[in-house]
Design a protein around this nucleic acid. Structure first.
Lengths: 210, 210, 210, 210
DNA sequence: CATGAATGAGGATTCATTCAT
DNA sequence: CATGAATGAATCCTCATTCAT
């Protein structure tokens, strides 16, 4: 590893282009889902299509990078909430944050709705998401604030489910998901009326999703 | 009302091909969603592409025919349940039937998840679905068997939502949706812990979906 | 040739269907040109597509039959005029009749505009047309009523040309062709201002069109 | 007006391909009319089908570009002639140029024969054509060199008409149109034997063609 | 590194013609 | 004979990805 072969720092215009690309792609994916074309993303970013492929070898890689970062942000806010005093409130706040994200981003919905088909980087993000949700859920469960039979994986899945419930009317009632989050969280908090008809979900990892 | 000018019965080979087509298309849509190509459907049916277009002028018409029939079947089972003695049990059974259908059919999920974009025939089916669900829900509500603030439109939306909750693990735990249906139905049945944080959804019709 | 193998007279329904077909096809070709589909013709005739092909083996044969008959009618009216006292007036009247026909029939325009590509039956019709026009023209020329350097083939070609001049405005001014027929016939009748810059057209037959 | 942000000049290979495409398309349209397939044009140009669509978004746009340029060239030559001393000779020369063009290009014939159906760019070209022809015709009329009742629109229409007269024999006598141009121009120049049987054509614009 | 031109594998749809009923 | 179902070649157009400049 001589100094001449040392990785040179990226050129400043390359850094800037990457920023432009990431921002444009995030916007485009949020609005139109992963079906948006590379051409449109490049145009929004004000760069050429070829430049997109210089930064990300395939479209999937680009999707994964954007989605991965969103998931990481979500994980970070979960970690902040992991120290909160009121563990049930923390869990509710986390779910709120997560569903808000889904409600704003069509691509994220696709990605969390079919984890088995995803790029490794996305799956890693989902893994980290699962971990932090597990932590939040465990705390609430141990505190007796939620049903004992609810797992972290339940909560992860419910993010997508609650969002999807309201999604068909999202254009008309963009906050409708709060209704179903309220209903669902009532169910989670309540003492069980009766045992759930199916055992808890297995973790994505056990599911062979990796 | 017979008549000498009556249209002759459809030819047996045409009937058979139509059956093959409908069956192949239903299967293909169920497995792969509406993105499956006409070429694949034709191949599965063992007929030529042109024959598909003889029976259905456009791909959308084919999708609509298949989805419309599924919705009609669902509506029919809803109507049967509308006379049941136990209105809450009837509603639960209806939801079970609906989600089972969604769990088996990717195209149906697309269709009920984005009603605003659909073919008229599908929208009509969704309308009928909404009506029968309204009936079932009203009965349960009047009987005091479910929360007073739950509407038929809530239930329609929850079909898609509960299904989606379990969908990411559908390959591994195909019955997992029963868990979330149980949890949700507990919430619907329970006396409200607290008022829901958002008013009821508007009907699709009011949403300008028509 | 036993009596049992003698050609049986066509069934009456077949005769009737043929009439319906010819009428419908004539209309459709007139309105839309030869690009009209067999499906539309069959529908207009109230018969099945297969029946079209029973009467005419190919679409071209059908076109040829219809066009041939139109040409024959035109030839017949030319023959009637061949005995008229005023040979120039007869020629003008014939041209009027011919262009009226073209103005009403898009397919006929296609057919006389590209005789080299046509079906034998059409070419035969065009041949007969040429003959009768030759007769009419010869009479007028011998009578000194038109320029001596005008041939029958000129007149045949001018039918299409005069019609085409007005065709772009046919929807708005359906009689406009009369203007150009007047202008052209003035030129044909006039004593030549100067010799024509190109020798007469060869006959279609010499042109290798057969 | 140079600038550091000026768009860089088009790449040489792109320019070359565009030339190849335009040349191939012009040839193909000339020979076979607008019905020639994109596949054939691409093959003639030695490029891929996709490249055609990169340069022209739709087949119609390609047609319009080629036809537009032809019309523009014709307009330019009309403008050059608008200053000539002998206005009748100028008009004749212009008609000669125009019909020569038509004789060589089947697509151009389609385009001027059905102006109402055309792409905006083509209609604009036809508009400009009409204007320059109007100018040439007005000059000749005012000079008393042609009949007083002939308008520019007549001349535009006659281009197509004279060409069509000779078109059926174009393969055998490619110069035959000169004969009919001579005949027609004699008629235009002559003092009217008698008034024309129909008023002048309306302009395309008045015809609702725009 | 950036550019944007070129590629080519599909995908939906049309229609003359054939042929089983 | 009539029917109309089936065929499949042909057509326009899209888009992720590669690569010459």
């Amino acid at each position: 590893m001589t100094s001449s072969s040392a990785a040179r720092p990226p050129r400043s215009d390359a850094v800037r282009n990457r920023q432009l690309l990431l921002r444009a792609a995030a916007e485009a994916f949020a609005e139109q889902g992963t079906e948006v074309t590379i051409a449109e993303i490049a145009q929004r970013a004000g760069i050429a299509k070829g430049t997109v492929f210089r930064h990300f070898a395939t479209k999937d890689d680009l999707v994964a990078a954007i989605m991965g970062e969103m998931l990481d942000n979500l994980v970070a806010s979960g970690m902040r909430l992991a120290g909160a005093a009121d563990s049930a409130a923390a869990l509710l706040e986390f779910m709120t944050t997560g569903i808000e994200l889904l409600a704003r981003d069509r691509a994220l919905c696709e990605v969390v709705g079919r984890p088995s088909l995803q790029h490794p980087a996305v799956r890693a993000g989902i893994d980290r998401l699962c971990e932090v949700v597990e932590t939040l859920t465990d705390r609430a469960r141990r505190a007796g604030a939620i049903r004992q039979d609810i797992t972290g994986q339940d909560i992860v899945l419910l993010l997508g489910g609650v969002h999807q419930t309201a999604a068909p009317l999202a254009d008309v009632q963009p906050q409708l998901w709060r209704r179903y989050l309220g209903l669902t969280f009532d169910g989670i908090r309540a003492q069980p009326a009766q045992p759930l008809p199916h055992p808890p979900p297995c973790r994505f990892e056990e599911a062979g999703i990796h």
